[in-house]
Structure formats: C-alpha cells, structure tokens
Design a protein around this nucleic acid. Structure first.
Lengths: 247, 247
DNA sequence: GGCGCCACGTTTGCATGCACTTTCGCCATG
DNA sequence: CATGGCGAAAGTGCATGCAAACGTGGCGCC
C-alpha cells in the first residue's frame, strides 16, 4: 500500500538521474565548460557507481544535447557552433512564447509571488559569482515553464535553456546577465496583468537581448582537471563521507 | 578526415539506434499498442543483442516519452492520458508553426517536389492499410521539420509527432486521416508560394483538425488502460483513494 | 468460502570482465 | 630537427553474472 510505495521510493535512488542532475548543474554553473572530457570510469568513481550507470547518464545527457557522444571516444561537454547557438536561441524564443501565451492572466497570486521571490534572489546574487547568477536566471525560465503544467513544454524548455547556458559559456562576455533582473520583473508583471501580447513581446525582446549579448564574441576554452571540479557536485550524490545531501 | 568518418560509420552498427528506430516504427504503425510490454531480454533476444543494449534503447525511448519506465518493472509502451494528448497536440502546433514560418518562401524546387512526391505516396496508400497512411502522414511533418535544417526543431517535432501517433492509437476513430492528403498539399502550396501567414493558418487548422478528429471528446476515447476504465465504476465502490498512480 | 501470507519464478539493477578501438609517447629514420 | 610508425596505456562496447525486487500462484487459517 502507501507504506510499500514509500519503501520503494526510499530504496530507489535513481542514481542515473542524480548524476545527470549533478552534471547539468555543473554545466549550468560553468564548472564544466564545453569540450571538457567526461570519461565513464572517472565519472563512475567520482559518484561511487560503476561505469554502467555513468554511461547511462552520459547517454541521457547526450540525447539532451548537453554532451557529445562519439563512438569509441570519450564523451565531452557539448561545444555548440555559433550557428547552432543562434538556432537554439531562436527555437527557445518560440517555445517560451508558447509558455507566456499559456501563462498570461492565468498566474495565481502565489505563483507570482514565487516568481518574484526568485527574481529577488537573482538581484541579490548580482554582485556575487557569475555562475550563480546564470543559474538563477535559467531557473526563472524553467520555473515559468513548470507553471504551464505541460510536461512536454517543461522538458523542452528546460533542455534548451540548459543548452543555451552552454552557448553562453562559449560566446558571451563577462557581464552579460546584468539587465536580466529588470526584464524578468517586467515579464512577470505583464503576465500577472494578463497582457499576453506585451508579455510575449517582452519575452522575445529579453531572449533577443540575451542572445545578442551572448553571441557577440568568442571566448577561449580553459583546460583544467575536470574531475576535481566535479567534487562539490558529487558530494550530495556519492556515498563517500556520509554527507547527507537533501535534494 | 572524411575517410576516417566513413570508416567509423562502417564499423559503427549503433545497435541501440537500430532498435530504437525499429520500435518507433512499430509504434507508429500500431504494431505495438499502448500498454504493450517490452521486457529487456525478450527485446534483446529478438534483435540479437544483450540486455544491455536493449536496456539502453528502452532508456532512450523512455526519455522520448514513447515508453514508460518504472523502476523494477517491465517497460511498457506509453499510454498517454487524454489531457496529455491534448497538451501534446497543442505544443506540436506551436512547434510546427515555427517550422512553417522558417520554411515559407524558402523551399527549393527540389524540396517542393520531394514533399509532393511524399504526399502522392500518401494518396496512393489511402485505400491500403491504415497504419501505413499514418506513418506516411507523420513522415510528411518530419520531412518538413528536416527542411528547416534546425537540429533542435527536427528532434522536437519528430519526437512529438511520434507521441501524437501514440495518442491517435488510443483515442482516434478508424477513418481519421482521410483529408490529410489535401491539407498537406495546401500547406506545401502555401509554403512554395511564400505565404507564411496562410501556411501557418493552414498548419494550425490541419493540426486542429487532426486533433479534433482524434480527440473528439473524452467520452469517445477508448482507453486501453484497464485501471482508467474502471475509475468511474470505482467511484461509488471504493472508499476514496482517487490517487492516479505513477509519475 | 473468503482472506492473508509465503515461497517461487520472472525480470530488472548493477558491477565486472574481456575484446576491441583510440590515443599518445617514444624511438628510429630521413 | 622534423617525421612517421609502433607499442603500451587508456577508454569504450558489450555480454554476462549475481543479487534484489516484483508479481503470482498456492496454501493455510479464520
């Protein structure tokens, strides 16, 4: 019955999902940069699982476009070309238009509050480390998608948002997410006000602006020890050191 | 370089992909119906591979939403609910609008010919077995997406088109794809003529019509999920526990 | 006769092992 | 000094083995 379900949940760690999420986070916060190598066994060792699991996780991320898988070769964090980046942002704009269309005038007071709270966190993080800002900004868009209640939309927007982060890591200049806060606020205001046209226009402009800021120059990749970078992300996933990790 | 790539291709059977494609086709042609069980070892035996590969393929299809994976349980072909079906068609319309917007007025003569040739095949198959018609109609939409040259769009449209086939298998009445041929022709004509507005309108109408024919009402649906069938009967019999399982 | 429990077969979860491929350092050669 | 080939090391591709979990049939108990 209920207890059995709970027991099943407790004994169902879904380690593949945990690793995927950890890697996604690492990518979104730029701990992992495009081109970084992700060998199966190093990954497995880091997360305390066998290659089988690590391999599965890589397969998943590969199908999401975050990781490049080539046969007989080490998986690497995807390195989108400039064209792909433009394409990504373009499709993303289309998808997020769908999101705001569904949301305009339909947000509950609680949802608006939740969004504004998130934006407040963005504002507070503005002075702090850039990766956090990027993560928070991305989470805003994903939270928006989640509020549509459409599983497909949620999946696609999340996926493409992560991939866009990847392109930002490649092409953007340092202070590229400055105005995101006010733009996010405006979008929420338009949504709360039920002005669908204004909301879509704002969202379009917002993404255009992000893409414009992002796709101007080309940055240089900086090689380093990827597995060390992963350490903090492995902490709440690996069985080592009993450090319980919520989430 | 080119030679290396070719060599890699030759020695790269990519059996996971082969199995995925086979299953996708089986689903699209209704050889596999929602709820059908897909045990790993049966699959592996059928395709001459080990469970490892079959498992990988199932994971892939699971992330595409074609297969339902529950921990420690046999994978089954996905059984979308009526709400999910509506959502699917809605998002699909949005995506395909993006496709026609990109394509309007940009199709080469060869591409138009290719599309019309495909539609001709659809017309010829009209008298034949229904699964073939469905497959051809779906391939039209996928081919359209492919012509955008946008990998993301291609992936999303393909995926969602396959999933829509699944909902058709569940909810549609026998002769539901009759008018698809003429509607497809009109869309191609509008695209070739460069009339983006008309093309999007036609595509909207087309998908609306397909969804309408398919999803007429919840009442006409013929759900195969026995538990769902029983739900109304359980209402005055069961104590409470309206809890729909899963996910 | 109905109900609950247990034990068995089936199926998945995961790790490991082996074969094959790629990569890279090293040495011989021009 | 540059270069080309070779061999070891590293890494992936895949199958198989074992343990745990699920579902089911049978049995005993009420």
């Amino acid at each position: 019955m209920k207890a059995d379900v709970d027991a099943a949940r407790r004994t169902a760690p879904d380690r593949v999902g945990v690793i995927c999420q950890a890697l996604r986070r690492a990518i979104i916060e730029r701990a992992l940069a495009p081109g970084d190598r992700l060998p199966e066994d190093a990954l497995g060792e880091r997360f305390g699982v066998s290659r089988t699991i690590a391999r599965h996780a890589l397969g998943q991320l590969g199908s999401e476009g975050l990781v490049e898988l080539r046969r007989n070769r080490i998986a690497v964090v995807a390195t989108p070309s400039w064209d792909e980046a433009r394409d990504l942002f373009d499709v993303r704009a289309g998808l997020e238009r769908l999101v705001v269309k569904r949301l305009a005038g339909r947000l509950t007071r609680a949802q608006v509050a939740e969004l504004e709270e998130g934006i407040e966190r963005e504002r507070q993080a503005k002075g702090g480390p850039e990766p956090i800002s990027i993560r928070l900004a991305t989470e805003f868009h994903i939270r928006l998608a989640e509020m549509t209640g459409s599983p497909v939309l949620i999946r696609y927007v999340s996926e493409i948002a992560y991939r866009c982060c990847l392109t930002l890591a490649l092409f953007s200049r340092p202070h590229s997410s400055d105005c995101a806060v006010s733009e996010h606020l405006e979008i929420v205001a338009a949504l709360a006000g039920g002005d669908a046209d204004r909301a879509t226009a704002l969202m379009d402009h917002h993404l255009d602006a992000v893409a414009g800021r992002a796709l101007l120059s080309e940055a240089t990749a900086k090689p380093r020890n990827i597995m060390d970078v992963l350490a903090p992300y492995a902490l709440d996933a690996a069985p080592s050191k009993g450090g319980r990790g919520g989430r």
